[in-house]
Design a protein around this nucleic acid. Structure first.
Lengths: 194, 194
DNA sequence: CTTGCTCTCTACCAACTGGTAGACGGGCTT
DNA sequence: AAGCCCGTCTACCAGTTGGTAGAGAGCAAG
């Protein structure tokens, strides 16, 4: 079996990402894992420390995936497509992960700063790349940072808003996720490719 | 002064929308208002009932605004622009409102069903309109429902993700909100107008 | 003045929160 | 065998949670 600390972090990611941080008690978490709350507090000195650790694991995972996706993609719109596909795969494998990212950003400092500080350099690189592409005329001109934020919002929205999705007549299945991913790409392509 | 029940609902909207539902205790709410928790429970028999009431007020408010915006707009992309502008104004006046909508959708049933059931007919009408526009060749073809969901995600994202916004180098000021609104419109126009 | 109604209050309560203190067992090294 | 960590446990704790019971103030009608 996986080490206890890791099992705790996995369960915490899922619980924080779906039910929310405050709504998840250490007792709930422990019950799910078949252990006692005090075992959690042995591995993580406090609930906040557990949150911080889960944030670090998650940002690490996301960064690695994005890094790899960008490196393997051909330049131009291909990079954007690669990023969207990578995030889509991530959501399919770890459905709670993007929900967790959103939850952390909602919690505000100090949790959110931990996340944003880790992602900031990536945002800088991405917006620099986008600006260069626009300057070269290979993409329509938009504010790179706001474009990124809009894209991020669309990805998390299309991936995590299961309830709103239901109201829109979409079921949270894998094939539906793929359809949403393709639709998102077609939307982005229409907006960006001149 | 406003009636007590209304003051409670206003404070609850702000608190639920920013701090979250579970993270807001009735004692917190009462302290903010300068009353006792039991006064809240006199007007609303339980915390859940308070939530339900706030949901109803919010959906009502949003629906009225969208209704008016659509009615006053000229057909074509003008309607989309009108909707975005209406939502933007709403956010400027009640910053917590969209955050609250997102929070409710995260809480899941039965709270979320109350919201989605109210909005569903509006979604149907909107996607029907979009489909007709696409059929007539006045808009590029996309899946109408997914397009709506993507737009909704962008609006809420650009409006509410203050923390992520900060990481992207945007300050949550009014002028920045307007810039974000304009950018969103230009993005949508690029994606939709053939 | 009395009655009755509306509203807010004080006084509780059981359940649960994150966290502390320390016992217990099982395996490792000496 | 003896001691020593390591990991998990039981037993508690003070503070907070949503919610109940009921007192009392203010006020209008009889």
């Amino acid at each position: 079996m996986k080490p206890t600390a890791e099992r705790i972090a996995d369960a915490a990611l899922a619980a924080f990402g779906t039910r929310g941080y405050e709504a998840t008690s250490l007792d709930d978490l422990a019950r799910e894992l078949g252990i006692r709350k005090q075992t959690i507090l042995y591995w993580y000195p406090s609930k906040e420390a557990l949150l911080a650790s889960v944030i670090d694991r998650t940002t690490g995972e996301v960064m690695v995936r994005l890094e790899r996706a960008v490196a393997a993609a051909e330049p131009g719109f291909g990079r954007i497509e690669a990023i969207v596909r990578a995030m889509s795969r991530l959501v399919a494998r770890h459905p709670a992960m993007l929900g967790f990212v959103r939850e952390v950003s909602r919690l505000g400092p100090p949790a959110s700063t931990r996340l944003t500080r880790a992602i900031a350099p990536l945002v800088d690189r991405a917006s620099g790349y986008l600006a260069a592409e626009m300057d070269a005329g290979r993409m329509r001109r938009h504010d790179p940072r706001l474009l990124l934020l809009a894209a991020y919002s669309m990805v998390t929205g299309l991936a995590t808003e299961v309830e709103v999705l239901r109201a829109f007549g979409e079921e949270p299945t894998l094939s539906s996720l793929i359809r949403r991913r393709n639709e998102l790409l077609s939307l982005l392509r229409a907006a960006l490719v001149p």
